[in-house]
């Protein structure tokens, strides 16, 4: 929706309705959550470079708006199937930074008792059915969750989030087709961050937008500005309403950008520094949303500036909690394989 950081009056006008309906407190919380996600990711990277993290991580810095916009449009009781770059989605879904950080640091107090790590954070109590280490691995599961909702006759929806890379897996095709023929309450959210590890979008697709595939499955597909939480919010709200009406799934493509490498060992030879700098300077989701809220009189500059500090404090406490919690006991190594 917004191509650069300059906010035109008509853009502000277009947001008027959603800004009105969400109200200042929710909007401020959305921005705060974006700050918290970024602070979590930055701390994760720092802890890794300090040698405190055993495994890998996939950072979502630059993609915070998609997480916050999508979660904001859904309700308690809805289901989340997440992908490997999923810290932001967990946090915006309501997972606590303490237990997430504890998982990242391999502690017993982590969401998965230190058995899953960064790539597999799940919180069954909040219907967060887990992040997935396999590209498109969770996409077929969405059909089952949708069927389950339909058979139990509830008004829940399932959002399954995946990347542009996953859109080229066979599982994507099977799942979208099946959800469509049965009108399942599933929202397919493709977080297109331009690269499948090193593969740039234009080299992997002969179409401009992943959403163009939706008509092939007989469902609606839209492309939104993934660096704008309100644009994402509006599209996911529409998809959720359609799903709750029993009209079936939708595909939402959220165009965004990851600032960091694919994982811990990426030298990023496949893209230029200028390209990264342009996204960071011109299209940063936090800067843009912050400016919007200040321009709209929802937040003053001091309030905007204080949010980053608040986020850092939240993450400080998460790290303290994690470092104080015990490592798993080796005597428990066999637990949890079978029910």
């Amino acid at each position: 929706m917004v191509a650069s950081g300059q906010l035109q009056p008509e853009v502000i006008q277009r947001y008027h309705e959603v800004i009105e309906s969400l109200g200042p407190e929710v909007l401020k919380q959305m921005l705060q959550d974006m700050h918290t996600i970024r602070a979590f990711e930055e701390r994760a990277e720092q802890l890794y470079s300090l040698g405190k993290v055993h495994g890998t991580m996939h950072l979502s810095i630059g993609q915070e708006a998609t997480a916050v916009g999508a979660s904001g449009a859904l309700r308690d009781g809805d289901y989340l199937l997440n992908h490997h770059r999923g810290h932001g989605h967990c946090l915006s879904w309501g997972s606590t930074p303490e237990r997430m950080m504890a998982e990242f640091l391999g502690r017993e107090a982590g969401y998965c008792r230190g058995r899953g790590g960064s790539m597999h954070i799940a919180d069954m109590e909040s219907n967060n059915l887990g992040a997935n280490g396999i590209v498109a691995g969770g996409v077929p599961l969405a059909v089952g969750v949708g069927l389950s909702i339909k058979m139990r006759k509830t008004d829940q929806v399932c959002i399954v989030i995946f990347g542009d890379g996953a859109s080229n897996e066979g599982a994507f095709h099977e799942s979208m087709n099946m959800a469509s023929i049965w009108n399942l309450p599933v929202i397919y959210l493709c977080e297109n961050n331009q690269y499948a590890m090193s593969m740039p979008f234009p080299k992997a697709f002969n179409i401009k937008h992943v959403s163009e595939r939706a008509p092939g499955y007989g469902i609606p597909g839209v492309t939104v500005d993934g660096n704008d939480p309100l644009d994402v919010y509006l599209a996911i709200s529409d998809a959720a309403a359609r799903a709750r009406r029993g009209e079936g799934p939708s595909l939402v493509e959220s165009v965004t950008y990851r600032y960091k490498g694919h994982s811990k060992s990426d030298r990023q030879a496949y893209r230029s520094r200028d390209e990264v700098a342009e996204w960071m300077e011109q299209r940063d989701p936090i800067k843009r949303f912050s400016s919007l809220l200040v321009a709209g009189g929802i937040l003053d500059q001091a309030g905007a500036d204080g949010m980053r500090e608040t986020a850092m404090g939240i993450i400080d406490r998460a790290v303290e909690f994690s470092e104080a919690s015990p490592m798993p006991d080796v005597s428990t190594i066999l637990e949890g394989v079978y029910a």
Binding site: Y79, L81, N127, L129, V139, P140, L141, A142, V143, G144, V145, G146, L147, S148, I149, M151, R152, C158, G170, A171, E174, S175, M178
Partner: peptide, 16 residues
């Protein structure tokens, strides 16, 4: 087939 299996997993995780 992959999604037959996946549908079973997703449904099983959510109470079926």
């Amino acid at each position: 087939e992959a999604t037959i299996a996946g549908a079973c997993i997703g449904a099983a995780l959510t109470g079926m």
